[in-house]
Design a binder for these strands. Structure first.
Lengths: 206, 206, 206, 206
DNA sequence: TATGAATGAGCCTTCATTCAT
DNA sequence: AATGAATGAAGGCTCATTCAT
């Protein structure tokens, strides 16, 4: 933690910058969630953020950069949170359960963010110049390794590749989030985490 | 089945129209798959289809209508194929297996179609004026009912709602298809169907 | 009157041609009256005429030609009718009265024609490539000469040029027709003729 | 009248905006006069105004709005000017004479404006969604009331309705203006005002 | 830093006209 | 003569981005 003087200095110079950049990014999430990336206008983002249109370009290179920045921050946070949450947990099933809860918690806390991530991310993955898929790949790798470790530890069956299982796991969470985002009903998204994990661990068959 | 002469007559009048509409639709799938809907130009679709730009508007109301038509036809076909494939199959596990194979078969046969459906459909679901989500809902309902029937028949566990299970099932297939579509490697998508179903039925746990 | 055989021949060859050309022209009047020349489409004219779009071009060189043909025929008829109506009439006031009645009668009989003539003719006069203003000039000359004759005969005052008086006379009829065409009320247009002439002859002052 | 400093301030802020809007409107009058509304391009208006095409849309909603704005301003000015000019004048004949002079003065000062008003206004009246005919109706009402007052005051004959007389009066001025606008000769339009009024008051007959 | 007026490239869509049948 | 599917040029309008203030 910086000394008071340092904090004040940074408050005068850095913090407002971070604040405004953040305000614009939050405005972008709201606007993109409402209208979709391509149907949104930079001017709308600026208006919602309470700044002039030109100001957006003091903090972001382009409209694309707004979207990339949203994804970058979201995925980086997700991976960091995920790693932290798994820190002291050794039981493979618990590890998956924690990841599922985190995944749905994060999206469930901010419906706008969920909309943007669930609706626009896939688009962007397709167009590599817009979003380096690295982060998402990192996330899938995190799941895959967790499953592979569980297989090595004898907790998970080994006749299914960790790769396939990771995709099934991620897909299940992803679809659950998408359904929640599209649904009018206001049920708790994170409440679904345990159901999904139970099903995946125990299997649908009796 | 009509007599040859009748078929020739209809081929002279109806077929060319259907052919051109179809050519434009296939061109749209190719172009949208390459560049994404919003970054594609109607003129590109026309060029790929081998017609003039204006001709597109003889068969489709608008650029949006192209996308909607792709979805409509794909989903209608999917549901019809799905219903047909389940016709004589009673074993619940077999029914799910068939649906999974069909799902991945269809997308695996046409990578461009897979790209459009996996990348653009979600966007369009969000904007109901663009695509009535009815068809997709129908598809999810088909899965849900299949699972509920399996539960009633005692084949599937009943401590997980059919709704949750349907989302997990669809999400697993969906993510598998998306991953295949994005991957450079040319593995068979439909080959994944059995793995996914085995995992979902048996569960990841031992 | 031609012999029956001649009539049949002409009915087979010439008459249908004239009929179709006429049908298209009448359709054009109706369509142009409803939407205005520039906002009308050749396809609409064809549909109203009950022919295919391409057929219009068998009888008219272009869309412009449709408008020109409407004006040409209308003005030619008007002048011919006007000359005929003045044939045996020598009293200058009677001559003006007859011209006014004819003018308003003609437009009053066919509201669509009135709309096209009153609304589109002025446009077209401005663009000489579209309509040779000769016909309208001929019409104004007919009025001017009638007034000049009346002046020479001592019936009309001579301290106003026949030219100015002709414009006032035509303008009064023109505005009366325009007002009638735009008005919702269904009063008789030709009934206005005498009022207008009385006013112009007698003057507004006491 | 504001103090110089205040004027300078307002000149710095308000004037440029008004100037640009005005420049575009004047350009539109020039371009529409040359080619007609439908054959003019917004890009031409912009080029003549010395701005980029997109700039037009910062000041006007659409191409239609340009035309409507021209009419609105012209008619509003005409009515205001007319009312002002009649303020202290009581003699009915003088009142009509003043209105006629104003009418022809205004159009005679700006031939382009005259072209647009005389040629395009009628079109627009026909299509009410494009131009609320209210203003023109107001103008006609002003004339009608002036005539009716003159009748009540015993200056004008009463065996002709004020309504008919107003149309004749307006039509005479309108046609005079149209003829001047179309004519190549450069005579003075406002010089015609007295001739027209004399004729209308005194009547063509002896 | 912040503004927001101005820019102008870009694109969907229309529709007069043509021409193979 | 008649059709109507096809053409493709044209233009209104949008909006990401810039830059003078």
């Amino acid at each position: 933690m910086p000394a008071p003087s340092a904090r004040r200095l940074s408050a005068v110079k850095a913090a407002p910058v971070a604040d405004k950049r953040d305000a614009i990014l939050r405005a972008a999430i709201k606007v993109f969630a409402r209208s979709g990336f391509f149907q949104s206008q930079v001017a709308d983002v600026a208006r919602v953020a309470g700044v002039a249109a030109g100001t957006v370009y003091l903090y972001f290179r382009s409209k694309d950069d707004l979207l990339v920045s949203i994804f970058d921050r979201t995925m980086k946070d997700a991976i960091a949170e995920g790693r932290a949450a798994l820190a002291g947990v050794t039981d493979p099933v618990d590890r998956l359960r924690r990841m599922a809860r985190l995944h749905l918690d994060r999206l469930g806390r901010d419906r706008d963010l969920a909309v943007v991530v669930q609706v626009e991310l896939r688009q962007s993955i397709k167009f590599m110049e817009r979003f380096s898929s690295t982060h998402l790949q990192d996330y899938l790798n995190l799941i895959r390794r967790t499953i592979a470790d569980g297989q090595a530890a004898g907790a998970f069956r080994t006749d299914v590749s960790a790769n396939t299982a990771a995709k099934v796991f991620f897909g299940a969470l992803d679809e659950t989030a998408t359904n929640w985002m599209l649904s009018r009903r206001k049920y708790s998204l994170s409440g679904e985490a345990d159901n999904v994990v139970d099903l995946l661990i125990g299997g649908l068959g009796r």
